[in-house]
Computed example of a mutant assay.
Amino acid sequence: MDFVADESLDFRIIRSLRQHGHQVFAIVEESPSIDDASVLEVAVSRKSILITEDKDFGELTFRLKKTHFGILLLKLSGLEITEKIDLVLSVVKNQHQALFNSFAVLDQNRLRIKTGKK
């Protein structure tokens, strides 16, 4: 599965996704400091799911109706990095089809998915 990782994403999560066979285009490596709209454009051009810890992507997709192929917003503050990695890997493995064309929010208690391309 292909992902674009926003600059806000902890690089240890990116590394773990790669170690588990996923292709991850990391904004921090390729285009650091670009704005959120440009990050979303990169994800769309790559037809990839965007993984972020930045809630501003909700505004871009819902209020401004920007196109996307899926966004996974992580709200995992307060958890140890190993717990964050385990949660992300579990969601990617078990919910990968549901993530496409959806806006998903992962917190420590659940995954909420709003389907439909925006």
Results as ranks from 00 to 15, higher is better:
M1E: 11
M1C: 13
D2C: 04
D2P: 15
F3P: 08
V4H: 09
V4Y: 06
D6T: 11
E7P: 08
E7F: 11
L9W: 06
D10R: 12
I14A: 02
I14T: 12
Q19P: 14
H20I: 00
H22G: 02
F25R: 07
A26H: 11
A26E: 14
A26I: 09
V28E: 13
E30D: 07
S31L: 11
P32N: 03
S33V: 06
S33K: 15
D35M: 07
S38C: 06
S38K: 14
V39M: 09
L40T: 10
E41H: 14
E41R: 13
E41S: 10
V44P: 07
S45N: 15
K47Q: 15
S48D: 06
L50I: 07
I51G: 00
I51R: 00
T52I: 10
E53D: 04
E53T: 04
E53C: 06
D56N: 12
F62H: 09
F62L: 10
L64S: 03
L64H: 10
K65F: 02
K66M: 09
K66Q: 09
H68P: 02
G70E: 03
L72G: 01
L74C: 12
K75Y: 08
G78P: 10
L79I: 05
I81N: 01
I81Y: 04
T82W: 04
E83C: 00
K84C: 07
D86K: 12
L87P: 09
L87D: 02
L87M: 11
L87T: 02
L87K: 15
L89I: 01
V92T: 04
V92D: 03
K93N: 03
N94Y: 08
Q97P: 05
Q97R: 15
A98N: 15
F100E: 08
N101D: 15
S102C: 12
A104N: 01
V105Y: 02
V105T: 11
L106A: 08
D107P: 14
Q108R: 12
N109W: 10
N109E: 13
R110L: 09
R110D: 13
R112I: 06
R112Y: 12
T115D: 00
T115N: 01
T115K: 06
K118C: 08
K118Y: 14
